[in-house]
Design a binder for these strands. Structure first.
Lengths: 257, 257
DNA sequence: GAGTGGTCTAGACCACTTC
DNA sequence: AAGTGGTCTAGACCACTCC
């Protein structure tokens, strides 16, 4: 448990080793260890992690300290607590909320399902800005996926998705089409890449000719441009996505606190 | 502390009164009491609330229970903790982050200040949709404020802000202009209305003639339409705002978890 | 040094799920 | 009944701020 573990709690005259700049509380160290285990795949998505008491024994700390570590993981949506059952690794597959990261809502009624259509899936050298965003070496190759999402037979979203070719070897339009759930579910189960967190930059843009045709709107129609950079464990960027949303009958919802 | 307080903690044979449907943990009850005190103005914005030990005595619970209540208030940004100093009521005035709710970021460099210009401030009967959003009775009057925000002398945001006339009696363009900080700071200190939480609906729209002139863009330019409903304590809606953002050199940033 | 929030422990009991 | 997360307590000590 590193330098600063009390070992036997009170009045041990082993002072915490003040080794320079860092101080991190015990529960943060435990949290880091848990994240490591998640990252290493010790517990798979949708599986239960050990109980709090088990973990407390394993790390030689009190149950309350483990609890606080897990509390933070739950707040970050890395795990899900279920009273009486256990604590489970979060997953994008088999989620009731079909698209955890998609903030698009229809003007009327709640979110019904959307039909996916894959236009394209090909490998190429990553363009400079993609390489930069995904922290690829210049010359590394990337996968470009293009697809639309439709509601009631009308296309609403056009996505252009860039992925590093390395981890996503074997990704194809067929694989994508065959898989039933959300794309991030496929990434998780087939490629071992879990999306944890993302940042989006949103703008208003005019539809160009190609986009206009695919979204079935006049050229120049204002569209929402949503540029997403998604990260996996350790804040490593693993997907750059640009979505164009037709907001004639939908809106992007957000909560401010 | 209502029905379900153990009184003397373990093995009191006073069983919790199972009165129907609700069960709420002690710390939630404490939290509700604290919110009530905030709402009633017992502690003013930017003031310190009593220490955890004081509150524990006052409510006859342990310090840990008070702590958990305050933890949640801090997570909801109702209060701010500062180690060694105390816990303070959150405020929109005197905040380092000038605009807590404004998600607009310049493409280059960090967020510098924006220049405000008030175009309009007048009272009128609330239009139907405004009345509905703000839960006003039909015929109630509302205040409409219109303003722009500029960076480097270029207008970037055009806001149209609807407020219930009742709580905002005396609001005028002069008052707005004279006040230095963010508008929500004025609302807080002058009208006792604190903005706690907001929901935004975002769309892409084309600039109409009037908007185009104010934002100095060609008619038809795609703009971000940001419709915000802001709430005060108890989730009561108190502001409906529609902003039009020129996203040529700025973007709306968002974090997904 | 006194006061405040922050961490950690140990133990009891409650609520929920499963067998 | 057993196992899990959830609540609550009591007490000790640490880190930070201010005087």
């Amino acid at each position: 448990m590193s330098a600063q573990l009390p070992a036997d709690p009170p009045d041990a005259d082993v002072l915490p080793v003040a080794e320079g700049p860092a101080f991190s509380p015990l529960y943060q160290q435990i949290k880091a260890l848990l994240v490591r285990s998640l990252q290493d795949g010790e517990w798979k998505p949708a599986e239960a992690i050990p109980s709090e008491t088990d973990l407390a024994q394993r790390y030689k700390v009190s149950q309350g300290t483990v609890r606080k570590a897990i509390d933070e993981l739950a707040a970050e949506n890395l795990v899900v607590r279920r009273q009486g059952k256990g604590t489970f690794v979060a997953t994008h597959a088999e989620e009731n909320i079909q698209y955890r990261f998609l903030r698009l809502t229809p003007d009327d009624g709640p979110s019904t399902g959307m039909a996916r259509r894959f236009l394209d899936c090909r490998r190429m050298r990553a363009p400079a800005e993609v390489a930069k965003a995904l922290a690829l070496k210049p010359g590394d190759s990337a996968v470009l996926v293009r697809r639309t999402l439709s509601r009631d037979d009308h296309p609403v979203v056009l996505d252009e998705i860039w992925l590093p070719a390395g981890p996503f070897k074997g990704l194809s339009a067929e694989r994508l089409s065959q898989y039933a759930g959300p794309m991030y579910g496929l990434f998780e189960t087939e490629f071992g890449v879990r999306m944890i967190r993302a940042e989006e930059k949103i703008r208003a843009v005019a539809a160009d000719a190609a986009t206009a045709e695919l979204l079935e709107v006049p050229v120049g129609t204002p569209l929402l441009s949503v540029e997403r950079l998604a990260h996996t464990y350790g804040d490593r960027p693993v997907e750059l996505r640009r979505g164009l949303y037709n907001t004639a009958a939908h809106f992007y919802r957000n909560e401010l606190n």
